[in-house]
Amino acid sequence: MNVVLVNVGGLALIALIVWYFWLSSGSTTTAAVTVGGVQETRIVVKGGYSPDTIRVEAGRPVRLIFDRQEVSPCSERVVFDAFGVSAELPTGNEVPVEFTPTEPGEYEFACQMGMLRGKVIVS
C-alpha cells in the first residue's frame, strides 16, 4: 500500500516539476513607451529576472533597465546574445541595456552562465 502511495506521489511530484519549471510561463510585461519613443522597462535581478518576459515592438529602440539587488556573482552580467549586447550589473546600480530589434521573434537573454533566463518577445 505504502509502495503504491509513494510511487503515485513520486509521479505526481515529477509531473509538478515538469509543469512548474518547463511548461508554465513566468511574469510578462509590455515595455512602456517613453517621451522619446523608447520602449522602456525596469527589470529587477534577484535570483532571476522580474519580469522575465518583455513584450516590445520591432523597429523601435528598447531600453531595459537592470537593477541587480543581490551580491551573488552568478547574475553579475546579463547577455543578449541575439543582439550582441551585454552589460555588467554592479549591485545596487541601475544599468540600462539598449538595442533596437528589427525582426519579430523571441529573443532570450541570460546571465553569463545561462542559469538565469528571460526573453524579449518582439512583435
Partner: peptide
C-alpha cells in the same frame, strides 16, 4: 515644451 529624451540610443557596449 517637450524634448525627446533620447535622440539616438547607442548600443550599450
Amino acid at each position: 515644451e517637450t524634448i525627446d529624451v533620447v535622440k539616438e540610443p547607442a548600443l550599450v557596449g
